[in-house]
């Protein structure tokens, strides 16, 4: 009986694999895995592109404030995870950010600082909180989160810069169309999650 149990236990142990929070880039871990994370998770990508397009539609000073808020909230989110706090609902918050930012980019009314400031802060925190890596050690976790934060910030900044430099009529229209696509995708998935 003991032998059978031992065989069973051995079989169970051999069949197990490591628990993984985010298996988006197998074989790539640490800082570089973190860098890839926002680019490979569709919801993160939607939110970052939508937020970047909207921030880029703001004037120079508010744009800098919004980018600063986004960076600060990313850092705060990283600190929360490294401090071993777990937060649920970050994935839904990311979709809300994508929907609102995409809609605002489609409408092209950048003067809503009362909306864009808190949204930038929520976006940064939610992206960081939804990027919990599979790493076990504190150092590896921090490196992966740092990579995700750097990639997320660069993505938003690049999209904002692109929006600033795209001044021709057709380019502005393309940004608005992209915003409407992002909002539509995010709204549909949010509805799907809330309904099921």
């Amino acid at each position: 009986m003991i032998a059978r149990c031992a065989v069973g236990a051995a079989a169970l142990l051999m069949a197990t694999t490591s628990a993984r929070a985010h298996d988006v880039a197998s074989g790539v871990g640490g800082f570089y895995g973190g860098l890839l994370h926002p680019l490979l998770v569709p919801a993160h990508m939607l939110a970052l592109v939508g937020l970047g397009l909207w921030i880029g539609q703001h004037a120079s000073r508010p744009r800098a404030v919004l980018l600063g808020l986004f960076a600060a909230s990313l850092a705060a989110g990283v600190i929360v995870i490294v401090s071993a706090f777990a937060v649920t609902g970050a994935d839904d918050a990311i979709l809300v950010v994508a929907a609102v930012a995409g809609l605002a980019a489609a409408i092209a009314r950048p003067q809503w600082l009362l909306v864009s400031a808190p949204l930038s802060a929520i976006a940064g925190a939610a992206i960081a909180l939804d990027s919990v890596p599979q790493e076990i050690s504190m150092t590896a976790t921090f490196l992966a989160l740092a990579g995700s934060a750097v990639a997320a910030f660069l993505m938003v900044m690049m999209m904002a810069d692109l929006t600033v430099y795209w001044r021709r009529d057709w380019q502005r229209i393309a940004i608005r169309i992209a915003g409407s696509w992002i909002a539509a995708s995010a709204i549909l998935v949010l509805a799907l999650r809330l309904a099921r």
Binding site: R4, G8, A15, T17, H22, D23, V24, V41
Partner: peptide
Amino acid sequence: MNARLAACLVTFVLAASPAAAHTGSMA
């Protein structure tokens, strides 16, 4: 009986795959 139970358990576990938060393939 216990051996059958153990065999069933092993079969189930071998057929399992890891749980992951982002299971969807982007492509």
